[in-house]
Design a binder for these strands. Sequence first.
DNA 1: CTGACTAGATTGAACGCTCATTCTAGAATG
DNA 2: CATTCTAGAATGAGCGTTCAATCTAGTCAG
Lengths: 194, 194
Amino acid sequence: MPQPTATPEPRCEARRRQILAAAAVCFAREGFHGASIAKISRAAEMSPGHIYHFFENKEAIIAALVEHKLEQSLSMVQQFERAEDVHQAMQERVDTGVNERTDLDHAALELEILAEAARNPRVAAIVQAADAAKRERLCRLLASARGTPRGDEAAATEIIMALFDGLASRAISNPTLDRAALLAPLQAALRVLS
Amino acid sequence: MPQPTATPEPRCEARRRQILAAAAVCFAREGFHGASIAKISRAAEMSPGHIYHFFENKEAIIAALVEHKLEQSLSMVQQFERAEDVHQAMQERVDTGVNERTDLDHAALELEILAEAARNPRVAAIVQAADAAKRERLCRLLASARGTPRGDEAAATEIIMALFDGLASRAISNPTLDRAALLAPLQAALRVLS
DNA sequence: CTGACTAGATTGAACGCTCATTCTAGAATG
DNA sequence: CATTCTAGAATGAGCGTTCAATCTAGTCAG
């Protein structure tokens, strides 16, 4: 018995991560359906057939990647929840948020995921479950930050999320986007919403 | 003589529109790469080969559809430009705007177009040219509505566009979206931006 | 009015290719 | 030696695209 309880699947898990990393690159560059298993296997430096030992099929790779991306995005909410002054933490995080959301590779993958969710029920379920979790936690944060309830917490949360989600679209539609200049009007909008 | 010079290409143009309408349905349902020429031809009630009399290839259908969609979206700006009171016209149009942007089929096609633009240079060029035109005109409208310049007109325009673009993402991510409730916080955000 | 002719519209089978997926046999490991 | 891992060729389906054949409707000769 080499490892009794320490590392559950050292090789297998590493391989899986290797495939997901390669898939993320290929999917961002060519889309879910433009990227072939052959290309992903080349990027992951393994044979096409071997990928099927770790994932049932191509859709499972997409699902796993989407899940992984959304888990990352949930960690942002956790940061706010741990912060002492929520208002201040949010204002400070806007800068980073804009840069993350308007990064071209990130934006491309995010839009690809949403477009896929619009037609693939399995992806839609993953996206919507993750979104519901994120939304509820953000809404609760907003309510506690406001102190006195105004009754439109859910809608305001929705608009704040639309604002940040929209940044990905803007990054694609406007390659001359001035990220720094966005901060002032964005914070003004957030102030009136929170 | 029924029509001497009125209709230039009645049959040909009608066929093109027929193909584009069928393609819009197929692309919204299955994505640009999921929808095959065979399926589009079936939806357009014509043979696959015949499609190639009207479009050079599949990419040309995508390009034509994207162009058509963006022309429609430009007509909204024209409405504002013709209005007497821009502020008022915008506030009145928000309701319609929310419903248009959060329509699932519209949102699916919009996200599909943006995802394609992120990797297809031809589509990117069309999207970005249309976006630049729309952006400049909206920015000018915002400046004239404000009266006294504040210097952040371009950035504020960008944030307003992000807000509306983001609604498409929200419609996909949250199927329980309460469209009517969005209006109040959305208008509050627009008021502080314009 | 009728039949031959024509040009454009339309068809659908066929082509070459790439895809996701499976299979087989050899290499590595213990 | 037994077992697990790995590679890459094989498979069949489906893709975008082409093209020779067919249909259709309008013109014109008689």
